[in-house]
């Protein structure tokens, strides 16, 4: 909880985690969803799953590495653009495009991360923002490749082993699979010795260096893996939408992903996924009843920063502990 660690976006030990008991019922609901609800809701849930991956990718960097990036949309956008450009302009399969998007995002993250991790705190934050804006400008200006502000559309959803992704349920299951894969892999990363080193460096870099850890290498790996998963979600988003525009790389999207992480609770992976769900649901529900959904999001966000630093996930944890 925030009181115990006032200076960092704290992670939590998963062993004492009452929320863990909820994961199997949650998985059952996710698996049964398309059979229970309308196509419209399935589409919304697909979008939630895709953004949950993006939010978890930032959480690795922010929650576990203590590196708050304002440029996550750069890698999300690179994944999306690579997928669409390769399939629409070069006639490749969207699956190939998606895979290439992941590689491009990870490679770009390795290069950009190499420069960004030299700075800490606000400097890091500004530098990631600067690189994201640079890529955003490129997406806007390199018209022959990116279609400028109009973006590129007209991508057909591909088929998978006989199932066509045009079917909302199939698309949903692909997104669910991608989400679960990301969650499992990211959990492996943060649970590994490497993950502990990353958290150690977040909490006390000087001590970890003295112990012989190469802090910059550890941070660079986190940045690269984070960019990889952001690109993974971006490519999937492009397949889902059949369309990409500079919005996929914009300042606003970086902010939105950051918001999802803070809302859900940094340093828990599941928390930011919940944050993505709550954000998109609030946006969806609130925007159909009132025009003031931005204010609602803003107020929730301010309240989270002021009073619930560990986000919705932290709140659930506290309720769970009280209950048990």
């Amino acid at each position: 909880m925030s009181a115990s660690s006032p200076t960092t976006w704290a992670g939590r030990a998963r062993s004492a985690d009452p929320v863990a008991y909820l994961q199997y019922p949650a998985l059952a609901v996710l698996l049964a969803w398309p059979f229970l609800f309308s196509t419209y809701n399935t589409g919304l849930l697909t979008e939630i799953l895709i953004f949950a991956i993006a939010a978890m990718s930032l959480d690795l960097l922010m929650g576990y590495g203590g590196l708050v990036s304002f440029g996550q949309a750069a890698f999300f956008g690179l994944g999306a653009y690579t997928t669409v450009i390769l399939s629409v302009s070069f006639g490749m399969s969207p699956w190939t495009g998606w895979a290439a998007g992941v590689v491009v995002s990870a490679a770009a993250a390795a290069v950009i991360g190499f420069l960004c991790i030299r700075l800490k705190g606000v400097g890091f934050f500004m530098l990631t923002l600067a690189f994201a804006q640079l890529l955003f400008s490129a997406a806007l200006k390199w018209r022959s490749l990116t279609g400028g502000s109009d973006g590129i559309g007209g991508m057909q959803r591909p088929a998978l082993a006989g199932f066509r992704l045009d079917d909302p349920a199939t698309m949903y299951f692909v997104a669910l699979g991608a989400f679960l894969l990301s969650l499992v892999l990211l959990r492996l990363v943060v649970g590994s010795q490497y993950g502990h080193a990353l958290v150690g460096i977040r909490d006390n870099e000087v001590r970890m260096r003295a112990l012989g850890y190469r802090a910059n290498a550890v941070k660079l790996i986190a940045f690269t893996v984070s960019g990889l998963f952001a690109g993974f979600s971006g490519g999937l988003y492009a397949i889902f939408n059949g369309f990409v525009s500079p919005d996929a790389m914009a300042f606003g999207l970086s902010g939105t992903i950051l918001l999802m992480v803070v809302l859900g609770g940094a340093g828990s992976l599941v928390g930011p996924a919940i944050g993505a769900a709550v954000f998109l649901l609030v946006k969806q529900i609130a925007s159909s009843y009132t025009e003031h959904w931005l204010s609602i999001v803003g107020i929730i966000f301010v309240a989270c920063v002021m009073f619930f630093r560990s986000g919705i996930y932290g709140l659930l944890l506290r309720l769970g502990r009280r209950g048990s």
Binding site: L259, L294, G298, I299, V302
Partner: peptide, 10 residues
């Protein structure tokens, strides 16, 4: 930083 970002939405 995050707090002021929240206010920008409002």
């Amino acid at each position: 930083v995050l707090l002021t970002f929240g206010f920008s939405f409002i």
